[in-house]
Each structure stands twice: as C-alpha cells, then as structure tokens.
Design a protein around this nucleic acid. Structure first.
Length: 389
DNA sequence: GCTGCCGGGGA
DNA sequence: TCCCCGGCAGC
C-alpha cells in the first residue's frame, strides 16, 4: 500500500513528493492558509473543497505512526491473531499478547520468546535446515485455521532477517503432535505446540509447565501427519509415553511386540511352568502315592529329580506277581538301578512311610539265605527296585 | 515279630 | 558313590 508510506505522524505536510510508483504523495498541509494543497492523483482519494483530506479509503493507517511496511503487515497479522485467539480460546488471552510483543519477535523470533530466560529449548537450534518461509497468503490462511500455527508463521516471518531465525523457520516444516491423552492435536510449529500444551494442558505458563512441555508432544514427519492417525511417534518422548500408557494392555500388540512377547513367553514361560509343574508334582507326590499307587517308591523318588517328563512313561501300576517282577528284572539292568539309587536321597521330601505293599520283595523271594541275590536296594534296606509296588 | 524302607553315616 | 545299619511303622 503505497498510500501508507507517508509520515502520518506529522501534523502538517509541508511538501509533496512523488513516489517512484508515479503516485503523488500528499503531505499534510495543516491548517495554514495559503498553503497549496496538492491532490494525489489517484483513484480512491477524495478531497474536500478546502483541500483537507476527507477520506482515504485506500489507506487504513493514515494516523498510524511511521512504520515500515513489514511492521504494518505484522500489525495486521497480529491483530488478526489476537482476534483469532480471543475467539477461539479464552484461555489464551494473556499469553499470546505477551508473545505478540514486537520486541520479542524482533529479537530472536518465536523460539527465544518461548524459551524465555530458561533456555530449555536451546537445543532446537541445533536440528535445523534451511527451508523457505511461508508467504503472507499462507500466513493468512494459517491464521484462520490454527492460532498457534499462525503465531509461529508470524514469528518466522518476523525473524527472517536473521540467519538464526531462518533455522527457526525451517523447523516449522516438521509437524508436532500433542501427546496429551485425548488431544492428539497436530501443529506445524514447535512453539505453537509448546504453547498449546502449556496453556491448554499444563494450565499456565509457569516454569514447571514449561519444563514439561516437551514430554507431551512429539515430532512427526509431514507424511506421517497426513496419513497416520494420532498415535505416538518413534521418538524419545513418545516412547516414554507409550511405555507409560496402557496402550499395550488395552490394545492388541503390534506386529513388533507380538513376537517379542511370544518369544519371551516361549523362553521364560516353559521354565516357569515347568518349575511350577515340578513343584506341584512334588507337593502332590504324597496323595498320588497314597491314592493311586500305594507303595510305589519309584514314583516318588524320581519326582524330585526333575525328570518329570519321563515319569508318565513308567507304568504307574505293575503286576505284583513274581513273574512280572522277574520280567522287570530282565528288562532293567544295572544302570537303571544306579540311577534310581542316585535319586533316592531326594526321597527325604516324601518323608511319609508308605504302607507295606503286597508285592513280594527280594527278601521274601530269595530269603535271607540268598541275600546276595537281592537287589541292591533290598540289600541296603532301601526300597526294592526289583519288585516295586 | 516280620517286613519294608527311610535316614544317617562310614569308607 | 557305595555300602551298611539303626530305627520306625505297617502288618
């Protein structure tokens, strides 16, 4: 707007100038008489009979103090921002006004104004890359959509004069998703996201809330933002959040989690189950012995040895006839006896004394006279292995 | 008392 | 590990 380029702060216009655009710029003539009034020969300008300016439709800042065109544009943007902020969220009345101070913007851009004196977000400057800044039209569109985003755009535009500010602009290309439960809002600016979290979720601009802002948003790529629904992104904060949340408990495990869990179970569960099973068998040793196979020392003696898997293979019931015992004697050789003997000391857990079985033992079969023919257990006064019950 | 066998101990 | 035996409990 070329018409705004005059120094409206002056009470009088002493001269007229002609701009480079061919327009004649009117400088205030004041109340002095005899002063010639020159008209600006441009459409939309009306002059009164005495030469005073009656209206100046093309200019909205006639009475504004001198400002650069950039500042005027920023004023408009800020005004729109304030109005938008007030209309959208009554909570953000105070902070946006604070952040909209020209001094903040012209100093270091939005990043510095947001970080304030704490400097917690200083690391943001290290992860940037050059990127084009949004145009004014884009900013205007953004203003109508997202207040926070518009703020950031505005701040970026204000900081475009400095190299460091360009880095701030480049960060606006990334998207930031709010991880606050039930929110999932996605903003294109880190500052806006921080402000969003601080104001809407953390409930204020305290120092503590500023520190916690970073934990409630995550950076997502533009592709992810377009396609992916609100979900934690693979970042540190998101990982922490995911781990703390009940996502795994309430939803089906993902493709990556399922194998991990299954593998974990496949490795740990069998041992645990085996241990429990062993313990249960061990504890159930007595009733099984009493009710199912009374007088069977083998079953109980082998249980604590840990070879539970093989136990069912051993016949729980054996014929108590001597012939079967002889067959068992033929089938079983010395190693079997030694194995049983090695496990026999563990029978101390089954401290109960079984009732006397009906099966004949080596003593009865061979007699004391033929003690050398007894099985080792019988000779040692142990449970007979040749004719177990 | 006989028998089966657990628990302990010695070599 | 092998061997023996005291002792307990069931019959």
């Amino acid at each position: 707007m070329a018409a705004v380029g005059s120094r409206a702060g002056l009470d009088t216009i002493s001269m007229c100038t002609e701009g480079q655009d061919g327009l004649v710029y009117m400088q205030g003539c004041g109340q002095g008489e005899g002063v010639g009034v020159q008209k600006k020969l441009n459409a939309g300008t009306e002059w009164s009979a005495d030469g005073n300016l009656l209206s100046f439709p093309r200019s909205s800042g006639v009475d504004l103090p001198y400002r650069s065109p950039e500042s005027v544009e920023m004023d408009e943007i800020m005004a729109a921002m304030v109005l938008t902020s007030l209309s959208c969220s009554p909570v953000v009345q105070s902070p946006p006004q604070r952040d909209l101070l020209p001094g903040d913007m012209e100093c270091c851009g939005g990043e510095l104004s947001d970080s304030g004196s704490s400097g917690y977000w200083s690391w943001d400057h290290g992860n940037v890359s050059p990127a084009p800044s949004p145009s004014v039209t884009e900013m205007d569109r953004s203003l109508g959509q997202l207040t926070d985003e518009g703020l950031h755009m505005e701040l970026d535009q204000a900081a475009c004069e400095e190299p460091e500010a360009r880095r701030c602009k480049s960060m606006s290309r990334g998207a930031y998703r709010c991880l606050w439960p039930g929110c999932g809002k996605v903003l294109t600016s880190r500052v806006g996201m921080k402000r969003h979290i601080r104001i809407l979720h953390l409930g204020g601009g305290s120092e503590q809330s500023r520190r916690e802002e970073d934990f409630y948003y995550t950076e997502v790529s533009s592709e992810d933002e377009e396609t992916a629904p609100p979900s934690p992104a693979p970042s540190f904060s998101s990982g922490t959040w995911t781990s703390c949340s009940s996502t795994q408990s309430q939803s089906t495990p993902g493709p990556q989690d399922a194998p991990v869990q299954s593998s974990t179970l496949s490795q740990s569960a069998p041992s645990s189950v085996w241990q429990i099973h062993t313990e249960h068998l061990y504890q159930a040793c007595a009733p099984i012995q009493v009710t199912v196979s009374p007088g069977s020392p083998t079953f109980c003696s082998w249980t604590p040895s840990g070879d539970v898997q093989q136990k069912p293979q051993i016949p729980a019931f054996r014929s108590r006839s001597v012939s079967v015992g002889e067959q068992w004697l033929q089938r079983n050789s010395a190693p079997t006896r030694s194995q049983t003997m090695s496990a026999s000391p563990s029978r101390g857990h089954c401290s109960f004394r079984k009732g006397r079985g009906e099966a004949k033992k080596c003593r009865k079969v061979y007699g004391v006279e033929r003690r050398d023919q007894w099985c080792t257990a019988c000779r040692w006064k142990k449970a007979c292995q040749r004719f177990p019950d």
